[in-house]
Amino acid sequence: MLPLETSCKQKEESITRMMEQYGPSLIRTCFLYLKDAQLAEDAAQETFLKAYRNLDRFRGECSEKTWLMRIAMNTCHDIRRNSWFRFVDRRVAVADKAASEEPEFIRDSTVTQAVMNLSAKYREVILLRYYQQMTTSEIAHTLSTSFNTIKSRLLRARRLLSDELKGWYFDE
């Protein structure tokens, strides 16, 4: 946690450190949530930019990671909500919008696809719980939702995921 009125240089150093530490998992989380590589890059960069702008306001009321994930999730929500405008702009109807083509960088994509097939609400709790390895309380804080709601969503999401991944994950 930085003291108030931190210099720009210090803030930049802090954010650079955060980008190194959290960048890879954060950009992948955004990708898995948004299902679009370009949007994921935008979301991740915007997350760190917002973190930079609000660093002075972070008082350590939660962990750094939780704080960043909260910004990331809100950014992703905004992007997702706004992304249909792109289709209007390009005169492509929403209904005609195909799912993003699978980027080249995904090899065997069994689990990735299974996660992406979940609806947004389930996707985010699964990603925060099992990819970001946050506790239920941290997820509730990140998504500004109650503990019980998160537990319910996780329950449902796990069911859906285990159906989807039958034959893969459970063949251990």
Partner: peptide
């Protein structure tokens, strides 16, 4: 689960280009 996702998305990285752009 985490390891598998990281494996599947191994080529999708936060790059130096991302850092510099930010």
């Amino acid at each position: 689960f985490k390891n598998q996702l990281d494996t599947e998305l191994a080529a999708f990285q936060w790059t130096e280009k991302n850092t510099q752009h930010t």
